[in-house]
Design a protein around this nucleic acid. Sequence first.
DNA 1: CACCGCATGTAACGTGTTACATGATTCA
DNA 2: TGAATCATGTAACACGTTACATGCGGTG
Lengths: 169, 169
Amino acid sequence: MIKEALLGLLAVRPMHGYDLKISLDRVLGETSKVNVGQVYTAISKLEKEGLIAADLVARDEKPDMKVFRLTEAGARELQSWFAAPVEKVDLRDELFIKLTLASRSGVADVRAIIRTQRSANMAAILALTQLREQMEQQGDDDTSLLVEGAILHLEADMQWLDLWERRRG
Amino acid sequence: MIKEALLGLLAVRPMHGYDLKISLDRVLGETSKVNVGQVYTAISKLEKEGLIAADLVARDEKPDMKVFRLTEAGARELQSWFAAPVEKVDLRDELFIKLTLASRSGVADVRAIIRTQRSANMAAILALTQLREQMEQQGDDDTSLLVEGAILHLEADMQWLDLWERRRG
DNA sequence: CACCGCATGTAACGTGTTACATGATTCA
DNA sequence: TGAATCATGTAACACGTTACATGCGGTG
């Protein structure tokens, strides 16, 4: 996923590695930062695959910078990423496995697990709601949308916990 | 996650590797099967960590089987897994990154991406709904609950797509 | 006889996480 | 002067996915 993101960033304008890292962090609203090293390893893979190419840029007194740009193959790859929907049907959910096995093994209190999970989710929703309001006040509509997505997922989990409790609580 | 699941299965009764694989598949309602190899590598790690221990069981004419059981440390590890809530606030969402970069780079049609994603999600929801009904008819309440969770997540994604369209469509 | 289920693994690859290494510049 | 930011990487580790290797036993 990080590779496609880098292609997308380079479609805006050519950038060097560190620049890409900073830009990617900004896209994610500084909520979760990528490790610099990961960016450089992703870059070198993309370069090997011929999806990006580097131009050395001399800066007086400072060491050269490697500025990357999309190749034609890279632009095509990016287009097919944009064209394909994200398929993420997750049928290997940790919480489901935990509750199922807690119920079957009999060595754990299923209701207690559900209560604990609900508390954790509510705390997370609260924190995210505050973060979203903060982003809105800063005029960062993109990040507030990102955070809203995370909230919606947690609310779905809460509904699912309700279902579980109704059926096996 | 698979390691914890194996601990949970062994809390029910001691089992050998292949048995664990079959049981884990069954927990997941055969919807997604784990690779046998992964089970064995997970087992050997758990054994090295002292969370499970093996007893060799002789079977006449057939080669011996390694039957695993929880150690005390394994039982404690399982308890702390049950006690801790699942924390999965995902703020690095692929669809979000895709839409953000499509919008910024200007080389892709954001509305088209949203439409494509909505179709894919609706198709997935339809398929999952049918699967859930099938599971209900078979009396497999656990799996139908698992599938319902996946549906709820997809519905959250649909809401989020609506939001996106309203704000930047 | 050929294929499937039982039973136990190893090897290679992809991706992500964390930590470490190096060196220059800028700023309090 | 010491810490933060700029700039480029390498190495180790975790986890999951796929494929491959081996051998036994039963069934069509």
